[in-house]
């Protein structure tokens, strides 16, 4: 596990967020960034030779359980926030008849 490789995933997500014209593509990119950040946090607590954070008979070294506890809620909350964003996208399409940033911001030059 290399945090640099994970950080490249986050940067790819930011690149897509900045350049994509489609609103749903932007929501996809937010999902990518979120997964990358979760991987970074888990990588922080992990170390070689550690076991999963469950106390058992002969457990001598566990990985840090704190980042994992924070990240579980992030996944569940992130999915609901994605759902809210997509519902807003559907409403935007009903309202403007288009789902692209350039057309919605510059309403005059629709072609």
């Amino acid at each position: 596990m290399d945090p640099l490789l994970t950080f490249i995933v986050i940067l790819v997500g930011f690149y897509g967020l900045a350049t994509s014209n489609n609103i749903i593509k932007s929501v996809f990119c937010i999902t990518i960034i979120e997964s990358g950040i979760i991987l970074l946090f888990l990588n922080l607590g992990n170390f070689e030779g550690g076991t999963i954070p469950i106390i058992g008979e002969d457990v001598v070294a566990i990985v840090d359980p704190l980042p994992q506890a924070l990240m579980i809620t992030t996944i569940v909350i992130g999915s609901t926030v994605t759902a809210l964003a997509l519902m807003l996208c559907i409403k935007l399409f009903h309202h403007y008849g288009s789902i692209e940033w350039s057309k919605i911001f510059g309403k005059g030059d629709a072609s």
Binding site: I24, L42, I52, P53, V63, Q68, I75, L86, C89
Partner: peptide, 28 residues
């Protein structure tokens, strides 16, 4: 996530990412 010794997080990701997230994307 499993390789990072975090099975709890992996279960959450599989449960959310298997059905619910693709469904809402397909519909929108």
């Amino acid at each position: 996530y499993v390789i990072n010794n975090a099975p709890d997080v992996a279960i959450a990701e599989v449960a959310i990412g298997a059905a619910i997230i693709p469904l809402i994307y397909v519909i929108s």
